[in-house]
Design a protein around this nucleic acid. Structure first.
Lengths: 348, 348
DNA sequence: TATGCTACTGGAAACGTTTCCGTTAATTGA
DNA sequence: TCAATTAACGGAAACGTTTCCAGTAGCATA
């Protein structure tokens, strides 16, 4: 406790080394129009007095605040692990300050965003999660650069009018379903469907259906299980609930495509409890490629999203736009099939 | 796109409804000294013009910014799940704005903190994680209220000079070790030890040792496995590495105390790979009580920390202090043993 | 020596609020 | 009816910075 230092201002520093305030300002902002000797003297005083510029005053005066916000829906989602860190590091490296702001619901994203931008004079926005239809349209009133990250991109349909970073959910889901089909599975349950056409779940469901169609397998609606609304989306608990529902429905299947790894963990549990052996009785695939998959027993076959690279891209795209390049770009990353032990080849 | 609205100010609103700026200010701040009719008229104009107060200007003028920062070390740690959300909600309800700030290392906490406080005119700080010796001392130069949350509290030793929220790591570790001993286990391996005396891992190790001592069992150092420095602390990967180390060391044990649930998942994997059956060959207990424990196979016996309640408490304590009550308090929460299927009773 | 140029520095306005203080109008009491 | 009180409001200073503009000193050139 060194008792209420009544935080010293730029004027205090100026007085201390007998220069004008503008000189101090120039010194701390690396302005070239200052004599090196003076700068050193001022900087020394800054250290001496423990002076720290007041951000509010600076932001008020300047047009750009050099602060970007990371808006994330469902901050607790395990999937975002490994994204916060790179985003933070990259932004800091690029000289931007940043804040993380958690929002509850998709709807909140746009409401919070527009208020935040004005309140805090943000100069950029990264939005993690949510869906493209809800976000993109309503966000268009915001006149600062922003990047939508890990949202479902409606392949082939109208792309949102803003820069995005993501994967092709439909194609990835197609691939992993196709992988199951190629291994002899014809009755594949899907866990985590979602109505509508732009949510992540809905896009993956579409990929699943296309794979079935192209393989000449009819879509059996009784094999599709939808996300429970009363349980958090993409949660272990939701996967567990859906798997139980699938088992007790009595419908016949030899493989399950769970549209997120976390939900796959819940599905594993339900299968164990029912005495169903993975992969002998039922094969399981997940989606996302979180690190836990490798520690399951058996290890999980899944579609891996390159999260760190996506995080890096989100930042570099935002920085590009904040520097004035207002070209819109859609960055679609390749996903990679990680083969684990959870899938067996079915021989009829 | 409605083209660069050149964000309107309080003066624009004042002009619009032909009142003074002070009247507008009073209206938006719920000042009682204003005619209800006028307030309504102003508020209407605010909505009309999409006016949002500039936070920088407000913070600059006011002494208190009503913003608190949540400093978290290891934002990716699954353990913090379920804490961000309550903290956010509680703070918002109490009328405080907040930002999350991730820091890499313990050392960074104090450095970042003191700069942040001045820069952003913070009026409060919640620090999640880290250790008490490193943080408390060095933070004492900060003259705003702050709360240390989920840090190891050195039981019986000098308490830090600031408000804390946590559990008694030593006692909890004692209890769960004792639980194993009571069920007949005499050779219990510990995974996740840590040198020093104030880290979470170190405190839990102490509890383990005390339980052994009080039961008259000699401490066998070869049963204690320490956290690998080259792998993130408390990670699944670290648990896996330590368990493999334990198995290949050839040392005999009938139970394992893994000091975090996430690490227990890694331990499970290593045991499965070695063909060791839980709980028949080896019993396993974890620590933390994350939701994943219930979905493991077998379900994990663990010591549950009441994270949501701790989060609530952290906020209410901070709010109390920000309101002027500078009394320091140490809130030690009770942990609860969650019994799963991972422990067997040993009969000799 | 006078002039122009350069390099550096200081003063002051402005950013958008809040709040103190003064003013006006309305209300009350005698 | 008049004075006194009060309710409601407007004006302007101040918060701590950045930046424009003007000013000074030193120096080279004519």
């Amino acid at each position: 406790m060194e008792g209420k230092t009544k935080s010293c201002t730029i004027r205090d520093v100026a007085r201390y080394c007998k220069v004008g305030v503008s000189t101090v300002s120039r010194a701390i902002n690396d302005d070239p129009e200052i004599a090196p000797a003076t700068r050193e003297r001022v900087l020394e005083a800054v250290r001496e007095l423990h002076y720290v510029p007041n951000n509010s005053a600076r932001n008020l005066k300047m047009t750009e605040s050099r602060t970007v916000a990371l808006l994330v829906r469902g901050i607790d989602n395990y999937f975002y692990q490994g994204m916060y860190d790179p985003i933070q590091k990259d932004l800091r490296e690029a000289g931007y300050d940043y804040i993380i702001h958690a929002v509850d619901e998709v709807a909140d994203v746009t409401k919070e965003a527009s208020a935040l931008v004005k309140e805090k004079r943000l100069c950029g926005l990264i939005i993690l999660g949510g869906r493209v239809d809800k976000s993109a349209r309503e966000l268009s009133s915001i006149d600062i650069p922003y990047v939508l990250c890990t949202v479902a991109v409606p392949y082939g349909k109208a792309m949102p009018e803003c820069t995005t970073v993501g994967i092709d959910d439909e194609r990835s889901a197609f691939c992993i379903t196709d992988y199951l089909i190629k291994r002899g599975h014809s009755r594949i349950a899907l866990l985590g469907g979602k109505k509508g056409d732009s949510a992540v779940g809905a896009r993956r469901l579409e990929g699943y259906k296309r794979a079935c169609n192209e393989a000449g397998q009819p879509i059996d609606e009784s094999l599709i299980f939808y996300m429970h609304d009363d349980i958090p989306e993409f949660s272990v608990e939701n996967g567990y609930a859906m798997m139980k529902e699938a088992i007790s429905s009595g419908v016949d299947f030899s493989a399950v495509f769970v549209i997120s790894d976390l939900m796959a963990i819940g599905a594993y549990k339900a299968l164990f409890e029912a005495g169903i052996k993975i992969p002998y009785d039922v094969s399981v695939v997940g989606f996302d490629g979180i690190n836990l998959g490798k520690f399951l027993h058996p290890t999980l076959t899944t579609m891996c999203q390159p999260r760190p690279q996506m995080a890096d891209k989100a930042v570099s795209e935002l920085v590009r736009m904040m520097k004035g390049d207002d070209h819109i770009r859609h960055n679609v990353f390749e996903t990679e099939l990680l083969t684990g032990e959870s899938v067996s080849t079915k021989k009829d």
